[in-house]
Write a protein that binds this DNA or RNA. Sequence first.
RNA 1: GGGCGAUUAGCUCAGUUGGCUAGAGCGCUUCGUUUACACCGAAGAAGUCACAGGUUCGAGUCCUGUAUCGCCCA
Length: 832
Amino acid sequence: MWYLQYPLEDGDDHVTVATTRPETMLGDTAVAINPNDPRAESLRGRYVTLPIVGRRIPIVEDEYVVMPGTEGDAKAEFATGFLKVTPAHDPNDWDIGQRHDLEAINIMAPDGSISDRHGWDDVSDDAKPFVGLSREDARAAIVAWFTKSGLLENIRDYSHSVGHSYRSHVPIEPYLSDQWYVRVTDDRLRGEALRSMASEQHDGEMPARLDGSNSNGDSTLHFSPPRYARTFQQWHENLRDWCISRQLWWGHRIPVWSLTCPIEGDLPDEPLSVPPDGCGLPMCGIDDDTMCTRISVDRGEDVVRIMVCIAGGHGDVEERLVEAGFQQDPDVLDTWFSSALWPMSTMGWPNPSAFPDTEGLLDAFNPTDVLCTAREIITLWVSRMVMFNRYFMDGQMPFRDVYIHPMVQDGHGQKMSKSLGNGVDPRDIIHSHGTDALRLVMAQIATATQDVRLPVDLVDPHSGETFSPEFITTTAGHRVSAPVQQSPSKAGGEMVTVYGLLAGEEPSDERPLAKNTSSRFDVGRNFATKTWNAARFALGRVECPEPVADVTALSVTDRWMLSRVATAAAGLEEAIGQYRFNAAAELIYDIVWRDFCDWYLEAIKPTVGDDPKQQRVLLSVLDALLRMLHPICPFVTEAIWPHVQSLGERGMPGLSLPSADMIAVAAWPKHDASLLDQDAEQKTARLQSLVTEIRRARSDNDVPNKAGITLLAPPSLHGLASQEAEVLSGLCRVAEVKPMPAARPAGTLAFAMDGEEVLLDLAGAIDPVVERARLEAKAGTLEGTIKGMNGRLSNASYVQKAPAHLVEETRTQLQQAEADLAATRAAIEALA
RNA sequence: GGGCGAUUAGCUCAGUUGGCUAGAGCGCUUCGUUUACACCGAAGAAGUCACAGGUUCGAGUCCUGUAUCGCCCA
């Protein structure tokens, strides 16, 4: 921070301004002071002489100026109370200049060097040596000049942030220039955008259309998750006019041609619809009714600048303009301007006859159903597409739903970016894990709230081995993988990373580029393999399926599986309808792996070979699951599909599964509520907990896998257990189911289930120490549960205020827990 | 500066109007090649739900504050 003295025009005194960019003083056109500053009164109406330049500049009063010593303002500590005002080179100074009608003097060229050719015309002899210097050299020279002249009062260290170009990384220099703007604050743009919002997502009153009408696109735009509607609304409510011109090499060129020519005579006040006489322009023949031209005239003192905007498809007019000396504007449109036209311009608009391939597309796909994008795009693209589409398409929306997906970050929580090389090429994941695995896991991690961290590993091109790379920290503080990595297994083997490519490393045969991978996708790969194997197994078991006429006559296990399929299908429909893709992925994962593979396939192994109806159920369930899975795992399901088709008809009452050549075009399974089977679900839940208990008993007591055991079931369980004896045999090697005898036989193991004691004859394999410990632990847990429930039930407020069914449920659970505890204690005693 | 989100098992994350003993995958421990699958199966251990208050019969869930992290916009 440099403190520069500016002498007052009259008298010997001076004011001191503080600045971090001394070189901009050449363009100062005022010094500002806060009107509340006690010094303001005596300085009112006075002028200073700008050093070097000799320009006479006023002292103006503006509340923007920070007064020295202001509490709680870090800037105040460095402030002198006087602010040099450089409207052409600082946005805040520009605003001050507007308020006080100050001149804006541009003292720089577009390359940032000091220049007298871009608006600076009072260059003094003292100032001439500075012209042509770079801004950095000029800063040093200005400071030297002030030092030599005794006008440099002080230098202090001051830390502040300066905007840098994301591309060239140099500090950005505010600079006065002519740009094109779109007046998006117009009600036909901003107002239409706000009115497009679904009313339940719009906060407060929507702006009414000026003519009081409604339009076909009103209140149709819906965001998922809904909180992003706020982003959209707030952006439009605080919208400023949009600068659409860019000084880049590529993009859509701005379709404006201009010519400056001398005026002959006075110009009329009204806007010109044709070129003024005297310019000699070949403008006739342009049909103003087609709105293909707009002519604007900029009046100077003795010249006029004519700008003509030409619609597309009028190359002949453009040629004639150029012949007449017109030049096309050198700027291109902001990329988001071009993108805003995407829903229309990709489908032939505005001139479909020029693009026969696009015939019918606009009607078919505009509006479309859903736009899927990331949050920062809401303002950049979503907003502009809505405004443009409504403006040009008679109020019509480009789409109805906007789904905002989470962002994938790298393993260090950094946004993936091209310049950091920390992104993952999906093809690398396809290479290491497969397309379906990539897709399933992407769906799984697409949650509504969190961004997702994806720790990235490398695949060693020398050995194919996966390993964690070494990381380095860039000067900007980012964690990136080191440009060159050592092979974990091949001595001396090296490889280049994606970041290495950016850092200038050249891959070679000896030192190849390493592919990325991530263990996050293992679950997807495993799932695809599991699905493939399960389908292979199931198909092999279907030999002679018979139609099922009566679903209620099927086995408990079959009815349960069909009930699960119907439940899962309904759940999937809901989840996908709400754009909750992670919920959909979890649902399909669980029904395929947990219900179908772990339980159903295992449970039917003993019976399916001899049961043609069960084969029909198995085939139908497989078919339905593949259809449900297909959106998330398209390839593995398509590969299995022909084999399912070849086994004949599927489906049964309540489950419709029409044939199709490809699963991609197969109908979603049509299921009805008749498949939902509470009885089968309850019975299976009981069997499942029985199986779990038996498996644990076997595991705890080291019963060999092949050894069959005998289940001694209490009356309430015996019917189900003996009916499902084959299921129990297949799942936990129960060789025999017997009723519970009156007296407990010696050497049996007991556990409590649903308030009753169940016995297992493990053929003497009981380990009493292990068994006692397990039972004691179980009793402890039960005691805790009982204590908690007793506490709840003895709380009068709970009994009175909680819903009756919950209180009832607590009572039932308490009874059962007490019965379980009694049974467990009995088992402990029997062990002794 | 304004806004949004996060903090739950060793790791990565679910947990939709407040209500069963807080879940999954990976990892970890033990066991297992029974003709779908070892990219598998079975069993198990593991969490004071960031912290402090509040509302409620009841809070991971609602409210207030604090801390830390991240993103978007200016």
